[in-house]
């Protein structure tokens, strides 16, 4: 038998507690049954916009499409100044410059997906170059994907090293690390991947690319936030969280915010530490705000498409 050796990341992972699937799903379901009404509902809906990364990630994205998205991010409800802008727009690297130009210094950030999104199946050199190029093109934030192939093959050191390399390439830009939880197969794996990403220097950990289902479910979000909470307890470093993919309704978004509230607390209910990656969610939130304010149910025709 070979001598026992392990990389530092493998040593760290041995301390990560297991996750019980049934119990974590029950806890998430129980939090989802919180009844958020009236003033607290309005507060949550406003927050949901402020933490939103309004996203378009299609092969068919064009300059026109990205400009339209940016306009929606800047003014979700034209003519209603009480509605805040979103936290960021999230686009492919090729669109980073267009987005940068559109949002200017409005405070809306430009996030670019990188590292051969969504599969991540490319060369590290290419990934690093892509990150540098995206940042140079005006991305404030980069959303990288982890090497799931390496992770599932047990090569945790490779996953870790790659994140470290990307982190270095980011420079001043904010790094979000996408685990693509729908491909990891278990909550135990999600929990391990979260720790790898945080140890490697992620500013945020993010559930999904949006290209794989399931994506940002409540229980998977809970597992990742528990990892963040423990990381903060043990290292003092606060890592942000971004669920992305499948959050389409205001009701879902509120359930996610309740989860944050009761797992990480108020300090995470800000765009600096929490984002929701979404596209169609924004108009549903606007409709719900209209309903809360007027008392009557609204219609999609009254809200602008991105």
């Amino acid at each position: 038998m070979a001598a026992v050796t392990s990389t530092p990341i493998e040593a760290l992972l041995r301390q990560v507690p297991p996750v019980d699937q049934v119990a974590v799903e029950e806890r998430a379901a129980s939090l989802a049954s919180r009844s958020i009404k009236k003033s607290s509902k309005l507060w949550a809906l406003d927050l949901a916009i402020r933490v939103m990364d309004l996203t378009t990630l299609e092969g068919a994205d064009t300059t026109g499409r990205v400009r339209s998205l940016c306009a929606k991010a800047l003014r979700p409800a034209p003519g209603d100044p009480s509605i805040p802008h979103t936290a960021a727009v999230c686009v492919y690297p090729s669109m980073a410059a267009v987005a940068r130009e559109c949002v200017g210094d409005s405070g809306v950030h430009v996030a670019s997906v990188v590292t051969a999104f969504p599969s991540g199946q490319s060369f590290l050199a290419v990934k690093v170059a892509e990150v540098k190029t995206a940042v140079a093109a005006g991305a404030d934030e980069v959303d990288m994907v982890i090497a799931r192939g390496a992770f599932l093959a047990g090569d945790y050191a490779k996953v870790y090293d790659e994140i470290v390399a990307v982190r270095k390439a980011c420079g001043e830009a904010h790094l979000k690390v996408i685990l693509e939880t729908g491909e990891l197969g278990s909550y135990d794996a999600v929990r391990r991947a979260s720790h790898i990403a945080m140890a490697a220097g992620a500013d945020f950990i993010k559930t999904s690319t949006g290209k794989v289902s399931p994506a940002a479910t409540l229980p998977v979000s809970l597992v990742m936030m528990e990892a963040i909470r423990d990381w903060y307890q043990f290292t003092g470093r606060a890592v942000g969280f971004k669920p992305a993919g499948g959050i389409k309704t205001a009701k879902q978004a509120i359930a996610h915010l309740v989860l944050v509230n009761e797992t990480l607390g108020a300090d995470w209910l800000t765009p600096e530490r929490y984002r929701i990656g979404a596209s169609s969610l924004l108009n549903d939130i606007l409709m719900q705000i209209a309903k809360q304010r007027s008392g009557v149910y609204s219609s999609a025709g009254y809200f602008t498409e991105a």
Binding site: R34, S35, I36, K37, K38, S39, S40, K41, W43, A44, L47, L257, V260, N261, E262, L264, G265, A266, D267, W268, L269
Partner: peptide, 8 residues
């Protein structure tokens, strides 16, 4: 950590 929003 303190709670962020009060539930009505």
């Amino acid at each position: 950590p303190r709670l962020g929003f009060e539930y009505a």
